[in-house]
């Protein structure tokens, strides 16, 4: 009986390593096939619409309310130290460095990443990808690469919008609701934020998260088992894997940047 958990652990490790290997090969294939992307602008526009434009409302509303929440919490904490004028700095730094890219990645994973995985895996289940192969069309070229690129382009843009909306939200709470001085809010925001330390890291994070979510979602969809249970498994595992990977990679980037 003791062997069973050990066996299971062993199988889990083997499967994880195997998956990582396949994932790497898959990623390389997507990168290689991307040289044909210039012919696929039509497809890219469609995917940008689905992944970028349709994610816009949820990202903007979430950004606004996260900013308002940060404004309220930050104010309540700072006022105890008589430092409420630093609200802009506190909200700005946390939004730009961490919350903007991370929360955007989680939201986009939930909204667009899961949709990508579901769409591709149901194309697997209904043999649409085999159909493409029979027409000598590489599914990586026609389906996977445009979706991935659209995700990678959209993520930094959405993250930046999330941050700006968040700053607006905390300005509304701090300055309009709680009566802080608008000038000192902006001044503390501007003086706290440095391009290289904060904005650049923020953009790099968003870009890396975009790559992560894009590849995980397309990989899970592409390798799904060809039936309806496979579709739901691909969707669930996309959300779980991409969210956890986002948080882990976020820590690694923050640690590497040494700020």
């Amino acid at each position: 009986m003791n062997a069973v958990p050990v066996q299971r652990l062993g199988r889990f490790i083997v499967r994880t390593v195997l998956n990582l290997g396949r994932f790497s090969v898959f990623s390389l294939q997507v990168v290689r096939i991307s040289r044909y992307l210039p012919r696929r602008t039509r497809r890219l526009m469609d995917e940008l619409y689905h992944i970028g434009w349709l994610s816009l409302p949820i990202v903007c509303v979430s950004g606004l309310f996260v900013g308002m929440m940060l404004g309220l919490q930050g104010y309540n904490t700072l006022i105890r130290f008589g430092a409420a004028d630093s609200l802009g700095a506190v909200v700005g730094l946390s939004l730009i460095r961490e919350l903007g890219p991370v929360l955007t990645a989680l939201l986009v994973t939930g909204r667009a990443g899961s949709a990508i995985a579901a769409e591709i895996s149901s194309m697997v289940a209904t043999q649409q990808l085999d159909g493409l192969r029979m027409m000598s069309i590489d599914p990586l070229d026609l389906v996977i690469a445009p979706k991935s690129l659209a995700m990678i382009i959209s993520m930094p843009l959405l993250s930046a919008l999330f941050i700006v909306l968040g700053l607006l939200g905390s300005y509304i709470v701090g300055v309009i609701f709680l009566g802080l001085d608008g000038g000192s809010y902006i001044a503390s925001l501007e003086s706290a934020i440095v391009f290289q330390n904060d904005v650049l890291v923020s953009l790099i994070k968003a870009l890396v998260f975009g790559v992560l979510v894009a590849l995980i979602a397309t990989y899970r969809g592409y390798t799904a088992e060809p039936h309806s249970a496979g579709v739901s498994r691909a969707t669930t595992s996309t959300v779980v894997t991409a969210s956890v990977a986002t948080l882990i990679v976020d820590y690694i980037i923050t640690a590497l940047w040494g700020v």
Binding site: M45, G52, W53, P156, A160, L189, F195
Partner: peptide, 26 residues
């Protein structure tokens, strides 16, 4: 759709520019 995608990209770029130049002092 193409127009909306254009609007989306412009909004995003504007947000990045605001963060970089106005706030970050790039």
């Amino acid at each position: 759709r193409d127009f909306l995608v254009g609007v989306f990209v412009l909004m995003g770029l504007a947000a990045i520019a605001y963060m970089s130049v106005a706030l970050g002092g790039a």
